[in-house]
């Protein structure tokens, strides 16, 4: 007995065929979801006890990163400044600002300000700031345009694929050591060439290749080996 019309055969076939695409789509959606800011918190500003603006302090005032993050060149940890560092200037500037009351309270009582960590790597990752700084990886290569961040957020997903993007080919990002802390650094291009040691560069990859050699970077096999980061 024929219950369904013959045309429904086509629909049945299409459904079976379409289910492959549906499964593929679900898989793709899952992957995109775990890459999304919902999971990685990339570009999501965190609440802080004081709405500290890097845009103001770095972009407008022009403070160097190392004024506050003093240990970034010699330690794994860049360093969160003690309240004293804030008070270096704010003992005289913005004295009565209510926004800064937590800073003054911390200074009076000696209790630390409790900042919320923004760039938080998983604990099974060994990361060291100093080696990256000393091998010519700029602050904003990983941290993004900090001088344009009124509130701090992490630029990168901090996922392994993101780390490996550079570890597989550091020449794409490496820059002269003198430019590491320059927030407005631009890689050399045809319209903006760069002179380094008497050589004129118009291409990042050419410059990168030379710097990788000059700064004695370990081989790609070395820096993509598991135990480099998972110790």
């Amino acid at each position: 007995m024929q219950i369904f019309h013959r045309a429904t055969n086509t629909i049945a076939k299409a459904t079976i065929f379409g289910s492959i695409f549906l499964l593929a789509f679900i898989l793709w959606a899952c992957i995109q979801f775990q890459r999304s800011p919902y999971v990685t918190y990339a570009h999501v500003a965190r609440p802080q006890p004081v709405p500290f603006s890097h845009e103001h302090h770095v972009g407008a005032i022009g403070l160097d990163c190392r004024y506050c993050h003093t240990s970034v060149e010699k330690s794994s940890f860049a360093g969160i400044p003690p309240t004293q560092t804030c008070m270096n200037c704010h003992s005289q500037i913005w004295l009565g600002a209510p926004m800064l009351e937590p800073v003054r309270a911390s200074y009076r009582s000696g209790k630390s300000l409790v900042w919320n960590r923004v760039n938080d790597l998983p604990d099974f990752v060994y990361f060291n700031h100093s080696i990256h700084i000393n091998k010519g990886i700029g602050c904003n290569t990983c941290h993004g345009p900090v001088d344009r961040m009124p509130l701090m957020y992490n630029e990168a997903s901090l996922q392994m694929e993101w780390c490996l993007d550079c570890h597989r080919d550091p020449a794409k990002y490496i820059r002269p050591r003198s430019q590491v802390f320059n927030m407005r650094y631009e890689p050399p291009s045809g319209s903006k060439p760069m002179e380094l040691d008497g050589k004129l560069y118009t291409d990042q990859l050419v410059l990168g290749k030379d710097l990788v050699k000059q700064y004695n970077l370990r081989t790609v096999a070395d820096i993509t080996s598991c135990s480099t980061c998972h110790r």
Binding site: V58, G59, G62, L63, D64, C65, R66, Y67, D147, S178, Q179, F181, N182, M183, R184, E186, K192, P193, M194, E195, L200
Partner: peptide
């Protein structure tokens, strides 16, 4: 000098 004046303690790039 060329381009942006650099930031913080970094000297601006010299024109070649």
């Amino acid at each position: 000098f060329r381009g942006d004046p650099g930031s913080g303690a970094t000297l601006p790039q010299l024109q070649p």
